[in-house]
Structures are given as C-alpha cells and as structure tokens.
Amino acid sequence: QVALSRTQVCGILREELFQGDAFHQSDTHIFIIMGASGDLAKKKIYPTIWWLFRDGLLPENTFIVGYARSRLTVADIRKQSEPFFKATPEEKLKLEDFFARNSYVAGQYDDAASYQRLNSHMNALHLGSQANRLFYLALPPTVYEAVTKNIHESCMSQIGWNRIIVEKPFGRDLQSSDRLSNHISSLFREDQIYRIDHYLGKEMVQNLMVLRFANRIFGPIWNRDNIACVILTFKEPFGTEGRGGYFDEFGIIRDVMQNHLLQMLCLVAMEKPASTNSDDVRDEKVKVLKCISEVQANNVVLGQYVGNPDGEGEATKGYLDDPTVPRGSTTATFAAVVLYVENERWDGVPFILRCGKALNERKAEVRLQFHDVAGDIFHQQCKRNELVIRVQPNEAVYTKMMTKKPGMFFNPEESELDLTYGNRYKNVKLPDAYERLILDVFCGSQMHFVRSDELREAWRIFTPLLHQIELEKPKPIPYIYGSRGPTEADELMKRVGFQYEGTYKWVNPHKL
C-alpha cells in the first residue's frame, strides 16, 4: 500500500502544474464570482478556492472578487462561507491571508454602469489591468444573457486571457439551449467557454479513460460480442427537503440524466481518441451522441416518491408533501431510460440510465454486464461477469466473477477481482471535483468540460421526450421513500436483457 498525506498529494500536483506551459504561476489572475451571495458560491466555490489557495495550487498573485446585487462586505462573505471551509486552528494565518486577497463589488446584473465599476475595481488591483480574468457564473440561467453581454462589453482583460465558467442547466430543451449557446458564442470563442459538469471532475469518471485505453485486457472485450448491457446509475437517499420548488422546474431527467449520466455513457462508449488533447476527446464523445436516436417512450419509466409510513423524519414525507412543490405536480423524481448506440461496436446493446431521489442508498456507478459463458459445464450455477466502476461513495473498480467454492467439488461461487483505489492508495485525500475543474480552467484544459456541439446532441436525444411529458403530463409511478424505485423499472431492465441475480454482496474494501 502507498500512504500519501494531503501535503504529498498537493506537492505532486504542484510539480505537475508548474512543469506545464499552460499554468502561468507568476502571472496575476483575477477570479470573479458572479452571484457571490448565492448558495453555490457559499457552499462550493469559495470553499474550493480556499482549498486550492491553502494547498498552494493557485497562481501566487490571485485575487478573488465577488459580485452580486446584495450590498455585502468581505466580512459578510466570510461569515456565510467559512463554515464550509473546514479550516483547522493551525490554518488561521493562512485564512487571514486568503481573505486579504478577497474583495466585493455590489451591482445589478443588467446595468452597464455596475460592470464599469467592477472593471475599475479590477484595474485598481495590483497589475489588475493586465491580469488573466476568470469569470464564474454562479447564477440562474435567466440572467446569463445580460451578464455575459455586460462582461464582454465592460470587463474583459485587454492583455491577459479571459475565460468564463457556465453552470448547468444549459437551457431547458434543445431550442433554449441553442439560443443560449448562440448568444454566448457570439461574445466569446469556444476556447474561452467552460460549461461545467462537476461529474466530469470526479476521480473515477476520469479513471474510465485510463482503464479503457491503457489496459490491453479490456480492449478486445469492450464491444457487443461480449457486453450484454451497460447500466449507469445515480441514486440519492434523500428527497427534495424543502427545495422542491427549484427541482420541480427541471425534474430528474434535466437535473441528472441528460448531463451526468449521458457524459458517463460517452466515456464508456467512445472510441479511442487520437490523443488526450481536449478536442480529440470531445470529438469522440460527440460521435457517440450522434449514434444515439431520440428516446422512445416505451423505453422510459418515470416515478415519484411517496412517504414511507414506517419511516422516520423526512422519510415519512412524499414529494408532494414538500411545501415548495406545486400542488398535484407530476414532475418525476425517478427515471429509467434505455438508449442504444447504433454503431458497429455497440449495435443492440442497451445502455440503461437510472437516477432518482429518496432511494435506498447513495450511489453513482457504471456497471457493464457481460454475456453468459458459452457451453456451460457447471449446471447453470454460473452468474454473469460484471465490471463495476463505483464513482461514489467509496470509489472502487471491481470485476464480479466466478471462482471455485472451497471444498471437494467443482462448485462455482461469485467473488470479485478488486482493482480499488483504496487498497493501493491508503487514506489518500484526493482533490474534489470542483478543485480539479477550476484548476483545469486556470490551465486552459477543456477536456472535462462540455463543448457546444456535445451539448446540442445531448438535448436532441431528450427534448422530444421532455416535450411529450410536458404536454401529456403522465402521472409518475409512486414508489416508497427509501425503496429501490418503481418495480416497473426493474421490469424494463429485465425486458431489454439485464439479469439481476441478487445473490452477490459487494464487500467494501475500504472497511476491511
């Protein structure tokens, strides 16, 4: 086992960053958080920038500027975001240094004079007029057009580079997404736009490419001749908990499936790229999406959770019991969808996408189930092999396979070949997804960000279904809070070829 401390991990990262040409360590950078008073800024962006600063992973002359409508001070920003920093008493001095680099400007999102004030403020910072500028839009999409237009007109660096990070949702359907994309691309070049999907920053999602293309053993079996089906799962054990009003506007397909799960599907299904260059990788992902037809209604199961009468606390409440959810809402909190990649490698292999709230566990994984062994000599005792990439929690890679049961006879039983990170790298604290992705933006690497043509294809696949749901308002199937979801989803999976045995229990190697 390799035991690495946080300091050692960050030392390795620093070495990698400083050796590259793309990370300008000594240049002045300004990180501007648009929507600095909001939840995302408070819980994710400010803490992430602090962790990067604490670990010495930001360029040395980096300033952080918050911008929002609320009249706040840096002290206010500190008060609301610091509880999420997880700072230790030993880091007190470092924390003071961090907040000394912070400033805040209040202004409207659609007022040109406010942006001119913001620009004057940035120019007044040390070497601010020639600094590289990175704008993070932690804002609702309704203000994107006004904000990007004003940034472009008043706040661009004339000497350094300018980059803009856009948070999902990128529209509600193909038409609104196209409108937003066309607007942003009329102001910024594609190499300046970073559409963030934080799932692409997760260690195991990034590991998929290495697993596939750096190991000879997987190449020959990664196709329709050997793989019976692919299941991509995202499960949350909690409901909307008072935030249903926002969720109800989008629903589970827009929230998770059309982005996170579809991105994971691309990494499983794509061909080997010409290189690890950002556009070479994204070219292959677009090719996969172009091979997927629009979702067919007979390959869809929609569910909505109801309270568990035997549960406790939140578990007793259904989705419609959330006071922020519109009365009688038919918005799905669970969806199972089957897609097919219609190309030579994957023809006929079902890709089953499942996601839901208020389920029995927290889990995100990719599961490849292989065909049955031909010419069975073990009297149907063999179960199908599976390769599982567990994204969260407890990152893991393992192969479910058959071995001989101890004893006199040739009785096979299920076991696993474990390729888990935790076994080799004991207690290594890896940077989280937002840390990686923000560092990628500083480096100018777009590999783990969504390109406009990729986004367009993703919406093309799901828009007809979303429009049909909005028009017909089908009643989702009720499922109990804390269950596996509607049984109809299991029946759909069985119908397209997935075999669920229920006889195997994964042993978490992190707890051995």
Score class of each variant (00 low, 15 high):
255 D>R: 08
256 V>R: 15
257 M>A: 11
257 M>N: 01
258 Q>P: 03
260 H>V: 15
260 H>Y: 15
263 Q>H: 15
266 C>Q: 09
268 V>A: 03
269 A>R: 01
270 M>A: 04
274 A>Y: 08
275 S>C: 09
276 T>Y: 05
276 T>P: 14
277 N>D: 13
279 D>N: 05
280 D>K: 08
280 D>T: 06
281 V>M: 14
282 R>L: 05
282 R>H: 11
283 D>P: 06
283 D>L: 06
283 D>R: 06
284 E>D: 04
288 V>I: 12
288 V>S: 03
288 V>A: 05
289 L>K: 02
290 K>W: 02
291 C>N: 08
292 I>M: 10
294 E>S: 10
296 Q>V: 12
296 Q>L: 13
297 A>F: 13
298 N>V: 09
298 N>P: 09
301 V>C: 08
301 V>I: 09
302 L>S: 03
302 L>W: 05
302 L>I: 09
303 G>P: 02
304 Q>T: 10
306 V>F: 08
306 V>N: 09
307 G>R: 04
308 N>T: 10
310 D>I: 11
310 D>T: 13
311 G>V: 14
312 E>H: 07
312 E>F: 10
312 E>Y: 08
315 A>S: 10
317 K>I: 08
318 G>E: 03
318 G>Y: 00
318 G>S: 06
319 Y>P: 00
320 L>Y: 13
321 D>M: 04
322 D>L: 09
324 T>G: 14
331 T>A: 11
332 A>N: 06
333 T>F: 02
334 F>C: 07
335 A>R: 01
335 A>T: 05
336 A>W: 02
341 V>I: 06
342 E>G: 04
345 R>S: 07
346 W>I: 02
348 G>S: 06
349 V>H: 01
350 P>S: 01
350 P>E: 01
352 I>F: 07
353 L>H: 01
355 C>P: 02
355 C>L: 02
355 C>F: 06
356 G>V: 00
356 G>M: 00
357 K>M: 12
358 A>H: 01
361 E>I: 10
361 E>P: 01
362 R>G: 11
364 A>F: 05
364 A>R: 11
365 E>A: 04
365 E>S: 11
367 R>F: 04
368 L>H: 02
368 L>D: 01
369 Q>N: 05
371 H>N: 10
372 D>A: 03
376 D>T: 14
379 H>A: 11
380 Q>R: 11
382 C>K: 11
382 C>E: 07
383 K>E: 14
383 K>F: 15
383 K>C: 14
386 E>P: 00
388 V>H: 10
390 R>N: 15
391 V>W: 15
392 Q>R: 15
393 P>R: 03
393 P>L: 01
394 N>G: 10
395 E>F: 13
397 V>Q: 05
398 Y>F: 12
401 M>W: 15
403 T>S: 11
405 K>V: 15
405 K>Y: 10
406 P>E: 15
406 P>W: 13
406 P>K: 09
408 M>A: 14
409 F>C: 14
409 F>M: 15
410 F>V: 07
410 F>T: 08
412 P>R: 06
413 E>V: 11
416 E>D: 15
417 L>N: 15
417 L>Q: 15
418 D>Y: 11
418 D>N: 09
419 L>P: 04
419 L>F: 14
419 L>S: 07
420 T>N: 04
420 T>H: 10
421 Y>M: 15
421 Y>I: 14
423 N>C: 12
425 Y>D: 15
426 K>S: 15
426 K>D: 15
429 K>D: 15
429 K>M: 15
431 P>T: 09
432 D>L: 11
432 D>F: 13
434 Y>S: 14
436 R>I: 05
436 R>K: 09
437 L>N: 15
440 D>V: 02
440 D>R: 03
440 D>Q: 06
442 F>Q: 04
442 F>L: 13
445 S>C: 09
445 S>E: 14
445 S>R: 08
447 M>S: 04
447 M>C: 04
448 H>L: 15
449 F>H: 04
451 R>E: 00
451 R>Y: 02
452 S>L: 11
460 R>D: 01
463 T>K: 05
463 T>F: 08
463 T>N: 15
464 P>F: 04
471 L>K: 10
475 K>I: 14
477 I>N: 10
477 I>W: 12
477 I>Y: 09
481 Y>I: 09
481 Y>T: 09
484 R>N: 15
484 R>H: 15
485 G>F: 01
485 G>E: 06
488 E>A: 08
493 M>S: 11
496 V>R: 12
497 G>Q: 15
498 F>A: 15
500 Y>E: 10
501 E>P: 11
501 E>Y: 06
501 E>M: 06
502 G>W: 10
505 K>P: 15
505 K>W: 08
506 W>M: 14
506 W>I: 14
508 N>T: 09
509 P>T: 13
510 H>Q: 14
